[in-house]
Design a binder for these strands. Structure first.
Lengths: 327, 327
DNA sequence: ACCTATGTTATACGAAGTACAGTTTATGCG
DNA sequence: CGCATAAACTGTACTTCGTATAACATAGGT
């Protein structure tokens, strides 16, 4: 029983490809008589030809397609009057469900379960120290210990879990120290990145964001933070720097999401701060934006710590993933 | 055939413990008639009692120790006249070879092979793109694919290798862009860390370093860089920051060592720069040191790139590890 | 279509840590 | 000195992790 966000992730590629073709035939996007060729399909699906072959064989068995006197397969049954339609399949704009597309992109089970585990592991840490047992997690995810160990190794490398003296996996506790260290680091690198990014920011997008703040009252600080990261900071032409910023924010934003889920209302005036910041970025010398970002981060840090303290004393923290046992 | 720097690393703990006890009995540090108790030995060796038990059983089989009417084991053979010596083993100052001590500290084969692989993988990257095949590396190291995959996963997390579209492991190439990105990042975070570290630096050690520069003509820039990192920058009371700096330097210093091995002479005047820097740190306002560090890093970056270019064209780069195949 | 490499599973076993019950040793006290 | 009691130690069962190994499906390349 895999709890991945994407249940399609475990299915073999040929299944996914067969599914896509099936749906496109049903929807009439692939018309009767269309000539299906392995190579072009493989290109469209961004995969190799082997799974396409398998998918086609399967569809043939289902009688959705048929062989004919020539290379490839024809959509539908061949009758005397069928005229093969030979066109580039890319022109047809196949309907590829995003879930399937996502599942086709990444290879590796561990990638599909990783995000979920990361989220749960990160967000439990406000409530103290938790232990993770490999076999339990494996059972929970419905995968083998190999995959679990892969996930755990990466969580360890990314600083979300560690090993106890007894070599057991331990998550947390998230101390005020950890959080303020991470915010301090943000205060150092994010303004610097913003400065480097300045020449590469697409300012039209920033204006759109400002527009959205004005018009959309439901916009959340998390969305703003993500948008700021993607449109401004991540535009810095320094991969090492941007990657580092991302990984440093990982734990913080997971915990933030956990706090929201627990019902802590986000600050109203944070939105205003983002508004000011975006305004500075798009209409003023970048230095002022950098300085403001630094201040904003130190304010955010204080609020973040305050919110953590409130939640930490909630007795009914309750809903941890079953593989997380409090120590 | 494991190529680890420390061949003792593969042996089980009880072997190591038995070895230590054996040597200490032979050396007479553990006198005839001394009462060996599991618990205290476990404490001294920083382990649990189980491997100590195993070690004692082994020594008993070798007749180096014997049981007697009471708890524990006696060193040597029991005769009528033997009087049990009951003393705290910690007072005896057991002889524990550093190699054994090191091997006792870390658990896990992958840790023992990791450093070697990291060094080789990092340093080959000046010469372009290399491929690593899991089974070949496994054979080379004399370990299973499990361990190799663990090592590779961590190398990937640390940004030293990646996967190709075909899901093969690829190291490198180390581009000028990568290097200057990393140096740019250093220029942002290292001065900041130095500033945070200032109140925590043990200035006596800095003075010692300055002294060594004066007196020891054989001192290398690498040693200076490491010393600066450990004594000054790493003293910053922000774990996240220091860890980040460490991981960012990893590739750069591995490549640097590779360049030295290839016979590129290190700069003479770099030493002078470190001298100035340490002088600023210990005797002047920290801001001046931070500024100087920033300048120093940008100079170092330029030189580093120049040295890379020289080496990259050496035809006989030659001596890569056998599991690294150029693409 | 064959060859090679990776991703994953399943299984097995050794090594090491923990918990607990039961025994021995040390210590304090009369 | 003898005894009671606390503290220390051992034996053992149980748990978890580290590694090895074989096997197979999937995928990419030629």
């Amino acid at each position: 029983m895999i709890r991945s966000a994407n249940p399609l992730a475990q299915e073999p590629r040929y299944e996914l490809i067969a599914r896509v073709l099936r749906e496109n035939i049903a929807a009439g996007i692939l018309p009767e008589g269309f000539v299906l060729l392995e190579g072009p399909i493989a290109t469209v699906m961004q995969t190799s030809r082997v799974p396409v072959q398998a998918a086609l064989r399967q569809l043939l068995e289902e009688r959705l397609i048929s062989r004919f006197d020539g290379r490839g397969y024809l959509v539908g049954r061949v009758t005397a009057g069928t005229v093969p339609i030979r066109r580039d399949i890319r022109e047809l704009d196949l309907l590829i469900p995003p879930m399937v597309d996502d599942a086709l992109q990444t290879r590796g089970t561990w990638r599909h379960v990783y995000d979920e585990v990361e989220e749960e592991v990160a967000s439990c840490q406000i409530f103290g120290e938790f232990r993770i047992v490999e076999t339990e997690l494996a059972e929970h995810l419905g995968v083998s210990r190999t995959v679990v160990r892969d996930v755990l190794a990466r969580l360890q490398e990314r600083g979300l879990i560690r090993k106890s003296a007894a070599s057991h996996w331990i998550a947390g506790p998230l101390t005020a120290r950890t959080v303020s260290d991470k915010f301090e680091l943000r205060g150092i690198v994010e303004p610097a990145a913003l400065r480097l990014a300045a020449p590469h920011i697409r300012y039209a997008e920033v204006e759109d964001l400002l527009e959205r703040i004005e018009t959309d009252p439901a916009i959340t600080p998390q969305e703003m933070a993500d948008a700021l990261m993607e449109h401004c900071i991540a535009q810095a032409p320094n991969t090492a720097l941007v990657e580092m910023i991302r990984s440093n924010r990982l734990l913080l934003s997971a915990v933030d999401r956990a706090l929201i889920r627990l019902g802590l209302p986000p600050d109203e005036d944070t939105i205003e701060q983002y508004q000011t910041l975006l305004d500075l970025i798009s209409r003023h010398p970048i230095d002022s934006a950098c300085e403001y970002l630094r201040d904003h981060l130190s304010i955010t840090a204080r609020r973040y710590l305050a919110r953590m303290k409130i939640v930490a004393v909630i007795p009914e923290a309750g809903a941890f993933a079953p593989y997380l046992s409090p120590q």
